[in-house]
Design a protein around this nucleic acid. Sequence first.
DNA 1: ATAATATTTTAGAGTAATCTAAATTAATTA
DNA 2: TAATTAATTTAGATTACTCTAAAATATTAT
Lengths: 222, 222
Amino acid sequence: MTTSTEENYLKSIYHLSVGHPNPVLTSEIADSLTTSSASVTDMLKKLSEKNLIEYERYKGVRITRKGERVALSIIRRHRLWEVFLTDVLKFRWDEVHEMAEELEHVSSDELVSRLDAFLGYPKVDPHGDPIPDTNGKLFPSGSLSLAEAQTAQKYQVSGVSDHSAGFLQFLQKKGLMPGVLFSVKEIDEFDKSMYLLFEDNSGTFISHEIAKNILMKLYVNS
Amino acid sequence: MTTSTEENYLKSIYHLSVGHPNPVLTSEIADSLTTSSASVTDMLKKLSEKNLIEYERYKGVRITRKGERVALSIIRRHRLWEVFLTDVLKFRWDEVHEMAEELEHVSSDELVSRLDAFLGYPKVDPHGDPIPDTNGKLFPSGSLSLAEAQTAQKYQVSGVSDHSAGFLQFLQKKGLMPGVLFSVKEIDEFDKSMYLLFEDNSGTFISHEIAKNILMKLYVNS
DNA sequence: ATAATATTTTAGAGTAATCTAAATTAATTA
DNA sequence: TAATTAATTTAGATTACTCTAAAATATTAT
Ligand SMILES: [Mn+2]
Ligand SMILES: [Mn+2]
Ligand SMILES: [Mn+2]
Ligand SMILES: [Mn+2]
C-alpha cells in the first residue's frame, strides 16, 4: 500500500504540521528529509493522488485524516521499537533513533501489537514522546519547557525537544533523563542560567539555551 | 553496500548451493524467488560485478567466499529474529518466517549482536536450523531423516526439511516439534508408515512422505 | 509598479528492480 | 547429424525514486 519512502514523507509532513496551522512548504520537507525540492514535488503529487495529503502547487501541503492515520501508525512503531531497544536490548537513548528508523517500516501489525504487549503497553518512548495507541490516538503529555521553571517547586524531567545525539549525550552526562526529579535552586537574573538540585542533593548547572530544550512537569506526590 | 534485493538473491543462491556441487541454474533462482529468468540474469551480472558470485553466461552460478559471508550474515539475522518472535513474542513457528524475511534486512550489526545476547546465544532457530555465529561459521547439526528411524531406539525431533506453514501446522497438531522425544513402535513393511510413541505413552501415526521431511537425532541420556 | 530575489515546478536523465517478447545458445530427440 | 525443444539472455518498456538545470511563479525590495 505505502512504500517506506512514502511513509517517511508522511511522517515528516505530519511532524512539520503539528502545532502549525499553515500549510507545510516544499522546502521544509526537503530540508527535513535532506532531499531536493524537485524530489519532494514529485512525491507530493503521488501522495495527493492517494488522498494522503491535500496539495496545491506553490501553496504547500496539508495532511489529510487518512495521511495522518498512516503517519501516526509509523510513529507508533518507531517509538515502540525505541522502547524495545533501550529497555530490552539496553541501548542508550542517543543510539536508538537510526535503528528505529528502519524497524518502523516492518509491516506486520500483529508484530507491533505483540511488541506493545511484551513491553507492557508503554505510554512514552525513551525521549519522553508519547506513543500513539492502536487507533492512532495521541495523548498530549502536557509538558512545559524547563526554561519556565520556578524556584521552590518540585519538577520531573519528561522529555526533550532537541533529539540530536549530541544533546542527548550531554543530558545523560548531566543526569537529566526523563523521570528524574529536581528543583531549581537558583535562576540567574541576567542570563537565566539555572542551578538544579536533584533528590540526592547533588546538583548541576545549565544554560538557558539548554533549558529551553528540556521538557518537564510539575511533580505532585502521589 | 548490498540492497535487500541483492541479499535475498544471495541467500537464495546460497541455499540452492549447499550440498550441491554443480552450479546453480538461473531457472532455479527464478523459481525460488518467484521472479522471471530475465530479472535473475540481470541480477547475476550485478552480483558478479561485485565479486559476490562467479557467473558465466549459460553455465549457471557459484557463490564466492565473499558472497557466502554476506548470505550467512543474513541467515544469522533471519534465524535470530525467528527465535525472538517465537520465544519472546510467542508467535507460532509457522507464523514467523514472513516477518523474519523483513527483519533480516535491518542493517545494524550491533542490534544483531545484542539480540543474540538477549536471547541467550541460541544455537538453532524454531525450525531446528542452526544459527551461524558472528564469523559466519555454521555448525552442522548431524540430523537424519525420521524415515531412517529404527524401532527400539530413542530419538529426539531436531528440525524439518519442509518449512511450509501447512506442514508446520500439521506437525504442531501431531506434537512433533523440535526437542520432543519419541521412539518408533512399529514400521509397516508395505508403505513404511510409522507409529510413534511419546514419553507420556501417547502416540501418533505418520506416513513415510511426512517422515521424510522430519529431522531427528538419536537421543542419548546425559 | 517594476525589478530583483527566492521558491517551486517542470524537463530531462540516471539507477535499481521488474516485466514480456524476441533472439540466442544449449540439450534432447529422432 | 539435424531438427526440435528447453533454457537463458538480450531488447525494450515500466515503476519508484532520485538528481541537476532550466522555466515558472511568488515574494520582497526599490
Ligand atoms: Mn524511516
Ligand atoms: Mn524517540
Ligand atoms: Mn528477505
Ligand atoms: Mn527458520
